[in-house]
Design a protein around this nucleic acid. Structure first.
Lengths: 187, 187
DNA sequence: GTCTATAACCTGATAGAC
DNA sequence: GTCTATCAGGTTATAGAC
């Protein structure tokens, strides 16, 4: 692991614990046992660290969605796949997911725009899947936006909830959440 | 409206927009067209403003929950009431709800402890309602914590979603969300 | 590649004039 | 009750020694 990667890794822990704004470059350097100025040999700004963490996750979600879309399956199968992927990524990468959800607003300029583009595209893909389900009669006549929100709100906050209750079996978690979310919207 | 109340009101807008840590006392003063030092004639610290906003909401939720408990109805009716109250409070008070969700971790000392006490009690009451439903056979044999989370995660993030889509009819929103959340867990 | 020193600025909060 | 001036400390980031 390069020094740069070590910095990103240490930042993930601190940013998740206390929030991006609350962590100073001195804090980050101290957690790695050297001085703040030395960080700038490996990264060019604090915001660059945040951007790398957040955009990595966003690109990963985009890839997973591409894969789901390529299945060409019915709505229930596709929703199931999206939910399962989302949960698996969350359980494997909880720090990064927490940072994405809590601190993406602190991205600046081009990073902010790229994140928003990826996030909007992901939401639009999920919206398309839901609409396809409404047209095929798999989903009741509820407002598409509300269906979209009811699913995403649960998936996007799973990280904070799982943290406090990590005793729960990952398999049961995935099964129960998938079932609850699908039962809520599938006819 | 006293000057103190005006300050709280202005803080709600700014804290919600940019987050508690990102808003300086100078920013807050500027938005009211006077200087930062003057704020301290009406409030004793920045954290006191946050505490007033957050604890007000928390006490309000506690009162609503007391009322639901006093109904002594079956699980479905009680869940329906909790969900409805939660949505109504959110639509009427979106700034304060957003601040509670995003910035309660910045509370300090006694304020932090009081908030946690209220929040834990609210969660425990909802957990009791769910467990009562499991025992009465109204809810399937899913893990209680997962049922609790699937409901709260959606309700607690409604504020951010409603903001962008305020065109949606409040009545339909309440009906659809209630139906989706209940269908997910009620047998 | 890490250090010390420092620039330039922002932070919450207070003292005291008016 | 608002102002100016100020304090003590924190912020990101850079320059130059080693």
């Amino acid at each position: 692991m390069t020094r740069r990667e070590e910095i990103i890794k240490a930042a993930k822990v601190l940013f998740r614990e206390r929030g991006y704004r609350s962590v100073s470059m001195r804090d980050l350097a101290k957690s790695m046992d050297f001085k703040a100025a030395s960080l700038y040999n490996h990264i060019s700004s604090k915001e660059e660290i945040l951007a790398e963490i957040v955009l990595d996750v966003a690109h990963f979600f985009t890839k997973e969605m591409e894969q789901v879309k390529s299945l060409g399956a019915d709505t229930k199968t596709q929703l199931e796949a999206v939910i399962n992927h989302h949960i698996l990524i969350t359980l494997e990468n909880p720090e990064a997911i927490a940072i994405v959800n809590n601190d993406w607003l602190h991205l600046e300029g081009i990073h902010f725009e790229e994140f928003l583009k990826l996030r909007n595209a992901y939401e639009q893909d999920l919206r398309d899947i839901i609409n396809q389900g409404v047209n095929a009669g798999e989903i009741g006549s509820k407002n598409t936006e509300i269906v979209l929100f009811s699913i995403l709100s649960t998936l996007r906050t799973l990280h904070s909830w799982y943290r406090k209750r990590s005793g729960i079996d990952g398999e049961q978690l995935r099964n129960d959440i998938t079932e609850i979310l699908l039962r809520g919207v599938i006819k």
